[in-house]
Amino acid sequence: MELLIAIMVGVLVAASVYLMLARNVLRFLFGLILISNAANLLIFVSGRLTAEAPPLIPEGADAPLELVANALPQALVLTAIVIGFGLFAFALMLVYRGYQSLGTLMSDEMRLAEPKEDGQ
């Protein structure tokens, strides 16, 4: 199972790097969303996978009675998803606004903040 997910992370990263090499900012952003999911899976798998063992403590006990899933990576992934959600919503909005006022999505045509100097 770990191997399978590790391969999946690899495929996701490869796909997203391909997307992120594009000049189109929107493609770059899609790549970023994909790679952030790869990172989340990576955290998840590095906490070791245990099938069908929710980390719940039965009533009356102070500690889980048998081997349960590691709850910490799940909490971390959840936090990372929430943060990523906010950041990407913002980035998407920014790219959209940028497209409206700059009229382009190509990163090498965005030279407003760094104008070409004469003689270059």
């Binding site: 906010g86 919503a89 913002f90 909005m93 959209y96 606004r97 409206q100």
Partner: peptide, 13 residues
């Protein structure tokens, strides 16, 4: 609040 801020801003644009 933050989701509605973003969505309404986009909707108005």
């Amino acid at each position: 609040g933050s989701i509605l801020t973003l969505v309404l801003a986009l909707e108005e644009e």
